[in-house]
Each structure stands twice: as structure tokens, then as C-alpha cells.
Amino acid sequence: MTTAVSFSQVSRHYGAVKAVDRVDLDVREGEFFAMLGPSGSGKTTSLRLIAGFEQPTAGHIEIFGETAEGVPPYRRNVNTVFQDYALFPHLNVVDNVAYGLMVRGVAKAERRRAAEEVLAMVKLPGYGDRRPGQLSGGQRQRVALARALVNRPKVLLLDEPLGALDLKLREQMQEELKALQRQLGITFVFVTHDQGEALSMADRVAVFSEGRITQVGTPQEIYQRPASRFVADFVGSSNVLPPDFVQRYCGQRGWGSLRPESIRIQADASGDGVPARVLSKSYLGAATRVVLDADGLRINAILPAGARLPDDGEAVVLTFNRETLHVMGGEG
């Protein structure tokens, strides 16, 4: 399998700030790769290193086997969908989409045809003569996507492209993006701080923290077997359990991660399990989150709709399957 993008020991420092610090990364050809992390974790800087807007202060970057350091963005066959779209306000939709082709000297009729074709692909047929200012956020998003895709890039970079959309539109775009990626077979590198988005769309996810990658894996691996307390907490807000607790209930020693939905609550306070007291509940629609206190340790549990809800202050017992408690290696 070909490697689309490869980082070896790549750093991007701004003075004392280590935006990206000794990162190793391999993005495979044709995969949907997500870079997930909180703001300031280095995921966007990594994306900009691939696009060429930033140059690494150390390390080596390859794009399809070719050295990328020192190559300006306009010589990289890589296109970006910007976070705030960055559409040209003085050009109409067709000219925006056809910009990359115009720059390459494609004839006017040909580039108009290609632009219309891609606009139809992103479900905006007939919008060509409008200005970006006349479009809604979701439509601008599609134009930005079309403008990048029309160039048939080797890698498509997406910088939090769904961040500004409302929930419903975002879910719809997630599906469409995924479908588009499968249909075109282009490598997508997607930056997001939304773990749900990363898990639902990506083939593989890299979790960034403080300029470094803490874990790379499939969504299942990341979710079920987080490599560190940070990953466990950031992806799906797991219950991070201290070594003493894990040893008491599981036998092994080490930091543990227990997903809120793996926890069952039993009203019989004398039964086997972890004794706890209910602090509060919040209704989530499809489920209810219960916050509990287990001898000073705060634990979140998610109960599906229909389950019996304990009262606030009630003494309960928590149970879970051993396999669902994931013990993390090292200090976590």
C-alpha cells in the first residue's frame, strides 16, 4: 500500500512554543484520516505542514514518496478546504470553483464545464452565477469542497470544515463527505476537535495532544482501547480510574478506562459491585447521564432510555463486565 503522506520526526516550533513536536505519521493512500485533538494540540499546524503553508523546523515530510520541505503550496498537488471556506468574494461560484483550473491555463469553456460537473457532485447545480456572499454557510461549504475537488488532488485536506454548520447539516455533510471520499478514492486528511465526527467518518484517527500524537488507530481501537488517560478522557469522555481502584476490581494494576455506557446501576445497595451514591442526572434524549460518587471518585454512567432511573442521593451499586474496563499500559 502506498503512503500518501509521511512525517518523520517533524517539528514546527515558534520560538519556545512547540506547535508540532517530533511527530511520526503515515497516512495511507485512499484512506479517510482524521486528526483529532483539542485546540492548540498541533493538528491544524500538521495540516498546514502538508499543505505547505508552514515549513517544518525539523524533520522530513514526504507526499507520495516525494520530499515536501521547501516546496511551495502552489507546486503541491494537495488542496485544502479551509475552516472558514476562504472563498474569493469578488468571483462568482463558477469562477471560484474553476480558479485552480484557470491558474493552470485550462480553456474557459472546459473549466466551466468541469466546474459545473463538480458543483453537481456537491449538490449545488445551477448555483454558478451567484456570489459567495449570497450563499448560506452550508452552500459555501459545498463550494469550498468543489473548488478543491475540481483539481483532482492527490490529498484533500479539510480543516474543521463542518465547524460552522448546525448539527443537522453537519450530520448530513458527514455522510456526504464519507460517500464522496469512497466514490473518488482520494486520500482525505480531516482535522477536527469533535471526537464524534472523527469516530464516525474516519478509517483511522490520530489523537493529538500538546504537539504530539498520543495514539493512532481505527475508531474502534481508539475508543475501546485508549492508549492514555488523555485519549480515554478526550474521546468519548471515559471514566478514568486510578490504579488502586483498577487493582481492587480487576486484579491488574494501572490506570483504567471505563466507558459510561458499560456501567449498569443496581438499586440493591448490598449487592456485589462498586458502591456509589447518585449526585445528579441529565436527560440526553436517547439516554440519561447519571453522575455518581464512588467513595470520592466521580463516575459518569449512561443509561439507555427505558432503564429505571435512580433518585438523586440514592445509594446504589455499579456493575460492569471486566472486559469493558480497559487497563492502559505504562503510567498512562
Partner: peptide, 14 residues
Amino acid sequence: PGNLVEASSDLGAA
């Protein structure tokens, strides 16, 4: 906006 300059460069414009 600075990102328009970046976008242009990203789309292949010297």
C-alpha cells in the same frame, strides 16, 4: 483576508 492568499496559493497560483 490572509486566507484568500493562502487559498489562491493552495489552488496552484504562484
